[in-house]
Structures are given as C-alpha cells and as structure tokens.
Design a binder for these strands. Structure first.
Lengths: 296, 296
DNA sequence: ACATAATGATACGCTTTTCCTATCTTAGCC
DNA sequence: GGCTAAGATAGGAAAAGCGTATCATTATGT
C-alpha cells in the first residue's frame, strides 16, 4: 500500500514530462503512461493534456493535484501516529494508584515521563486498592498501583513490584513513645488507635491485624479515617496513634512525629497491576520509567 | 488504486474475525492474514491481538481504524470532485464579455446555469474587446464574448458565434429623424455623432467607419464616450446621435428612441472566444447553454 | 485427560498485475 | 523530407496477490 499511482500522478504533474517523471520514480516511461491512464480510467477524468510537445494539467488534474498531495500527507501523519502509539510514545493511559504511592519520586517520574512523551495523555486517579481492582476489571483504568499481598485473588491479572514500604508509627510530638528512637511493637497494646477503613485495602488490613494479634497487641481502635490526610490530622490532635506507610513522612506536618517499629509487621508492597494481555508498550515504558525513579 | 489493504484492515477490525472478514471481502482467509501482516510490517505496529479464540484491536489498531475510515471517505470525496470538474458540473470559470452581450436572455442563461451547476463558480467581468483578448491571452479569463470580425488576428484562439446584432440609431425623442420608421444611412451625413473610443473595439470601429465612408457619410464626431451608458445619456441630452447595438434597447430610457438603419453597416457579431486547447467541458456546457437562450 | 472443533498462520503453486525492452506514432524543426 | 523528441502501444518477464491444502494453538465436551 504505497499509494503508487497517486505518487505517479503527482510526480508527472510536477515534472509535466513523462520521461523525467519516470526517471524520478525509478521506473521506465511506458508503465508510467499506463498507470496514469489507469488512474484516468478509474476516475473517469482525463488529468493531463498530452502532446508530443508538452504535457499540461487539465482543470480536473489541477483540482486533483493538491488533493492528492494532501491525501498522501495525511497518510504520512496517520502512519506516524500509529507508530507512536505502537511503540508507546503516544496514546492514552489511565492509572489508578493508592495514596501511599504518591511519593516525591513518583511525582517526579510522572512529570518526566510526560515531558519525554508529549503525545501521551496520562489520566491519574487516586484510589483505594479495592476501588482500583474494580476499575481495572471494568476497564475504567489500564494500570493500577496498589497494595498487593498473597491473599488476594488476582488470577485474572498480572503484576510487578513497584516498591516496598515499611510501616511507621505516627505520634503526636508530645507523646511519651516519641522519646524512643524506635518503638517496640508490644508498646502499642491498648493504645488509642486510628485505622483506615477495612474495605479500602481488606487484605492489608487483615494482615496488619493478624500481625498485631500475633505480637499480643490488642489495638484500641478509637477512630476510623477514610483519608490518610484525616488520619494525620487526628494523630496530631492527640486522638490516638496510627500505623502509616513510610511515604507519609514526605508530607511534613506540625506536631507530628514518625517512629520506626520494632517487631514483625507486614511489608507494604505496592505493585503495578494490569489485566492479562493488556500490557501495551506505553504501559511497559511507564512502568519501567517509574520503577527507575524508586530510590536505592 | 483501490486501497485494498486499507479496506482489508477495516473489514477485519469490524468483524474481529479473519474468516468472516475474508468472506465479506470475497477472498480466502490466508491472503487476508498475509495482507494484514504486510500492513503491520509496513507500519511497524501490530494492529490486532490474535488468539485462536478471539481477535481484538491493539491500541495502535484502535487509533488506526477511524483514521483509515476517514482516509477512504476523503478519497471518495476527491474522486467525486475530480469527476465533477471533468464533466463540467463543477469548477471555476472566468468570463469576460462586452457590454452588448449583457442582454436579458444572457442574464437569464447565466442564472439558470448557476442554478443547475451548484459546484460551478462563475466569474463574470464586463470588458472591451481589446481588454478581453488581452485577458484571454494572459490567462486572466478562460472565455470571452466579444465583437469579432475577419480583420482581427486571432490565429492563436478559437471561437464560435454567439449572436448577431444589428445597429440601431439612438436618437433624442424630439429629433426630426425620429419621425421616420427607419432612417436611411445617408441621412446621417454631417450629423453630430457620439462614438465609442476606437481602442475599445478597433476592428469594429474601423469597419463602421469604412461603411459610413462607402455610403458617402462623413460623421461629425462631437464626443467620444467610454461607456455605453454615457453614450445614451449624451444622446438623451441632445448632444448628438449614436450607432448602438440593438441590445441597447433592452434598457429603456426616458427621452431616447431607437430606429433601424436603412443601408449597409457591418453586423455586430458577438462570438465566444477561447485559447486553443483550453476548451474544458465546463466551458462547452456554458457555451451550449448560453447559445440555447438566444431568441429565435 | 483426550479427542474434537474452531481459528489464525504457513507452504506452495497459480493468476493477475505491474514493469521492462523494443517499437510505433505524432509533431515540430532544420 | 528526413531528424529529433516525446508519449503510446505490444509482448514477454518479474512481482504481487490469491487460492488450496495443511499446520499450530486453544478451547470444549465427553
């Protein structure tokens, strides 16, 4: 599909000489004459006024020439665009990610990717793990970055690790435990606790609770916060303490301190997740790029 | 140039099934697979996700489909347009015509032609014979309607008769000659005369003067008018009499009378004139149409 | 688990299209 | 009147496209 004939016509129209045009096209003159005749037959319109002396365009040819040029140009553009989408330098991508993934290196990575891929439209949306999985399966998003753990049933999906975060204990500045450099897990027993809603990340929630129980810690959940933002506000207000992903510390806040935990807690594994057979070059490129931004 | 492959792609994209698509295209399935593969190779982009279970578009294919459709549609439009221009139902045409050609049947003919050929843009310009010939040769106009006579050198042009007009004598209402039903040529001797500029229609001018001399009439040219409009104003004002084309009488005017001439005067032959080998279907159609409007 | 059915890919020979070489035709020119 | 330049025509060769037969893969049903 080289639009051969269209090119033949344009070249003859430019040279106004079958011999020279044929030379430019690297073919002999007779087939060129034939092909032009074929176009004329197909269109039902004579495009050239021929004499042995000179060749000129008929009004029909005059009208055809710019249109033919435009068509070819259009075709070039289409080709480029399709190629761009194919190798991932253009296209659309909807990404759902959990709040904890929104680290400075994540933002930087996204910004760079946009910078280097002007043809790409990224659609970013913050979601809970539960919501993101649903959005993936209903094809509302193409890619998710969520808390993954082995208990989840994701046989219809594929995934790849993004980063592992540790838990930190969020404390009010003036809390007695803030004196210690790191807090033993057992110290959390019966402490007033602020948790996220289980439904947001059910497996993670269950895993954390399991770990606490195993360490003999019975948390006294005094409040359930839907947004991490709210959790921090409540902790700062002295309502209680909370276990938060380490990425939370990137947002500094008056009156809040973070301490590492001494003891066994599940890791916070953020994974890229996508539907089977839906991994496009664009997604691959984005995943590779974002992963490269993760420190260490 | 049937844009075969493009159509193949579109059909497969619509059916999402190589077998059915091949059937719709009236070819076997293997060549279809081959051609699709050829497109993919050419674009450097996989367009379909194939499995023995189902075929689906890749993002690149998704982008390509509407573009391919648009391209084909565009091609159809181009074809139609070229065909229209070729058979004269569309296009542009610049027509220069002498004032005398602007009769009611001329106006009606033009109006009808426009009505019946909406794709046609007519560019009408009133000109003198001299100016029209120049405009023709410099390709500023495509067709002229001018006073033609055998003395003119128009070997580079072709022509066809439009209509023959007679001369009339334009008189003030109260002029003594207005009493007669027709005026003998000899009566014009020494009468105050209003003439057009010789340069406007030189051959015609010379021919008229020759006829007058031959009849022993020595006109007393008191004024030279550039516009026929002006001639009539001057005649009505009693400045003199004038020889005018019979078409002039279609414009009635207070205080003006026209009388036939008894005697030998050149006929006013208005011809279509165009450059050799420049007669397009559109011009042919216009010429035929206008000529059919001439009375009798 | 194994045979069956459905579907796209591959192999290979045939047909059609396109191209090339050689020659013809026409129109200007010395 | 022959010469030259340019496009058209003729006929065979090369290339592209197509068809039949077959393979490979995957789901399905017993």
């Amino acid at each position: 599909m080289r639009f051969r004939k269209l090119n033949y016509f344009i070249t003859v129209a430019e040279e106004l000489h079958f011999g020279r045009a044929a030379a430019r096209l690297h073919i002999a003159q007779p087939p060129l004459s034939q092909q032009i005749k074929a176009i004329e037959d197909e269109l039902g319109a004579v495009l050239f006024e021929r004499s042995s002396q000179k060749v000129s365009l008929t009004p029909a040819g005059e009208v055809f020439l710019p249109q033919a040029r435009a068509l070819l140009q259009n075709w070039e553009k289409i080709q480029e665009q399709v190629r761009s989408v194919a190798n991932g330098t253009a296209g659309n991508l909807s990404l759902g990610f959990v709040w904890a993934a929104g680290t400075p290196h994540f933002s930087k990575g996204i910004a760079q990717f946009k910078q280097n891929n002007h043809g790409v439209t990224l659609n970013l949306e913050e979601m809970t793990t539960t919501h993101a999985l649903d959005a993936l399966r209903t094809e509302k998003i193409d890619l998710a970055m969520i808390f993954l753990n082995p208990l989840m049933d994701i046989t219809d999906l594929e995934h790849q690790e993004y980063e592992i975060q540790k838990h930190l204990l969020a404390l009010p500045d003036n809390h007695p435990l803030a004196q210690k450099d790191s807090v033993p897990l057992s110290d959390l027993h019966q402490l007033p606790f602020i948790s996220f809603v289980r439904q947001a990340h059910p497996s993670l929630y269950d895993q954390i609770m399991h770990s606490l129980h195993a360490a003999g810690v019975e948390p006294n959940i005094v409040q359930i916060a839907r947004l991490t933002q709210t959790t921090r506000t409540l902790v700062a207000a002295g309502v209680g303490v909370a276990l938060v992903p380490e990425s939370t510390q990137f947002d500094q806040r008056e009156g809040l301190t973070y301490r590492p935990i001494d003891g066994v807690l599940p890791e916070l594994a953020i994974h890229f997740v996508w539907r089977k057979n839906s991994l496009t070059p664009l997604m691959e490129r984005l995943i590779t790029h974002l992963q490269a931004q993760v420190p260490r």
